[in-house]
Amino acid sequence: MKVTEITDRALLALQGPAAERVLSALDPKAAAMRFMDVATLTLDGVEAWVSRSGYTGEDGYEISVPADQAEALARALLAHDDVEPAGLGARDALRLEAGLCLYGHDIDAATSPVEAGLTWAIQKVRRPGGARAGGYPGATIIEQQLDADAPRKRVGLLPEGRAPMREGVTLFASETSTDPIGTITSGGFGPTFGGPVAMGYVARPHADTGTKLFGELRGKRLPLSVAKLPFVPAHFKR
């Protein structure tokens, strides 16, 4: 197999409930696509590789175009009344509310998919008992964790007060305990949720939904509880 890195294209994301209406005005084929479908569309004269996906938890499209035509297409999309520019801060708030992992924060080379709750990414045929089981990097530990569970789990965390708890906040089982049981890997204010939200890793005995924990913020232990992800339901076009 040969993998060729493509370096001359740029990626735009058009996300939200109006995305279908806006994009299908440029190419009607956009409307027929379902979540994760990929198609080549012609948008404002530009050949675009489009997938109905994104990293916001909302319906929308990711649009790959030749880099030298990206600005013109972005401006054509922004000319629509329903389209506004959104930066990384907005995207980060949305993906956190959607419970989606950010690489380098919620997952990295030291995280297993069992800890991270990402076992959906392991094909059935590669799992224990499958026709082509094992034989991939990390298979030994992943198979062991699929069987006996992981020592720590990624969970949603809901601060009880108004203070956002961000990446790096250490978690404790009680107000007085000395040994940390986990840490926040992403956190902030969820504008759609309407309050502070976070996610992080906690030791398995503390990972059940509803478990009360404390996060140490500026020297104070503040209460939070383990919560189901996502904080805002996904609106994919299934």
Binding site: R162, A163, P164, F189, P191, P196, R218
Partner: peptide, 10 residues
């Protein structure tokens, strides 16, 4: 204005 929507003040 630069900070954006303020959600918490300690």
């Amino acid at each position: 204005t630069q900070l954006g929507d303020i959600v918490f003040v300690e």
